[in-house]
Simulated assay, not measured.
Amino acid sequence: MEQEPLMVRMAGGVATVTLNRPRRKNAISHALWLELSRLFETLSASAETRAIVLTGAGSDFSAGADIAEFDTLRGAGNAEAYETANSAAFAAVRNARVPVIAAIRGVCFGGGFGLAAAADLRIAAPDALFSVPAARLGLAYPQDAMQDIVAAAGPQMARYLTFTGARIDAKTALAAGLILEIVPTDELEARASSIAASIAANAPLSVLASKLSIRATLSGTAADAEAARVAGARTFESADYAEGRAAFREKRQPRFSGR
């Protein structure tokens, strides 16, 4: 009997989501794409969640969409529905109310790369490998996923990866700005948890305002700029702003409530 394909652990405001199909290199089935969307939307809506870590069980992050389903679920007649499920999962990660940190080891290919690119921060073990092999399979990436890849890796590296289908290692990904840092394999989860805990200790409304401002800067759209403006204005009226000032005066750690 197959294990649950997704595992979730919550501790100290940090949700750790683990892709759990290690025997398939955490390949993502159609059902798992749908479940990822639901899970991230649920976690994002919970006031308990302050940050999310996304990782893979075993020795890999994810080999991407499960190619075993392509003949039946990603053919000429039903590819659009499959791509809709992909896009919804990417959007759920990208639009999460809280920062998402991808902790990557081993292969991070295709749709797995798309999930990592949709995250806010990415850290990787030395053995991480990155690839966008769509051109080798004769298919195309959704445009919204491509936006994430360009934002994460830069336009030059995005072109190289998608045009050639080449694999790059962690050092190359670091040089391109795709990942924040390379972490020893046995310290990867601890480092991701440490970053997430630092985020979780800060004022949630302030973190959200920063996330939305960065998104608006990258997208250049009026809608994103307005969302960032509203979120920023809300911080000045919040209880957390009062708490932050009081904690500074009293020389103590602030206790933020997210209100």
Rank of each mutant, 00 (worst) to 15 (best):
G56M: 01
D60C: 03
A81W: 13
F109I: 03
P184A: 00
I149Y: 14
S257W: 05
R23T: 13
A102D: 05
Q147F: 15
A216H: 03
R249N: 07
A91I: 03
A225W: 05
I52P: 00
E41Y: 04
I67G: 06
I101Y: 04
P155K: 08
E69H: 11
R122Q: 07
E226W: 09
A239C: 03
A125Y: 01
R38W: 02
Y82F: 15
A79K: 12
Q143I: 08
L208I: 02
S59M: 05
L208P: 01
A196Y: 07
P155N: 04
A200V: 12
R24C: 05
L174R: 11
F248W: 09
L137A: 15
T164V: 00
A228K: 13
I149W: 12
V8N: 07
D66N: 02
A175N: 06
I199R: 02
I168L: 05
R245K: 14
M7S: 11
L174P: 01
E35C: 03
P142I: 07
A65F: 15
V150N: 04
A153Q: 12
Q156S: 10
S210D: 12
A233V: 09
G110K: 06
T49H: 09
E69A: 04
T172V: 11
A151D: 15
P155A: 06
A51Y: 06
A192I: 06
A96G: 05
E35N: 08
A233P: 03
N26K: 06
F61N: 07
A79G: 10
A79V: 12
I52D: 00
A119L: 07
D60G: 03
P133K: 04
T42K: 10
A197D: 07
G177A: 01
T42V: 10
L129E: 13
A231R: 11
R105C: 00
E48D: 13
L218V: 10
G13A: 10
L212C: 07
K171T: 05
A81V: 11
A47M: 02
A166H: 05
V207I: 14
H30D: 06
L180K: 14
M157G: 03
E187P: 00
Y241Q: 08
S59C: 06
S193C: 04
F70M: 04
A116N: 00
E243F: 00
P254S: 07
R21C: 06
G114F: 10
A203S: 14
A116P: 01
F70P: 01
R234D: 11
C108M: 03
F61W: 09
R255T: 13
Y141K: 00
A209P: 03
S62F: 09
V100T: 08
R259Q: 13
G12E: 10
G106I: 01
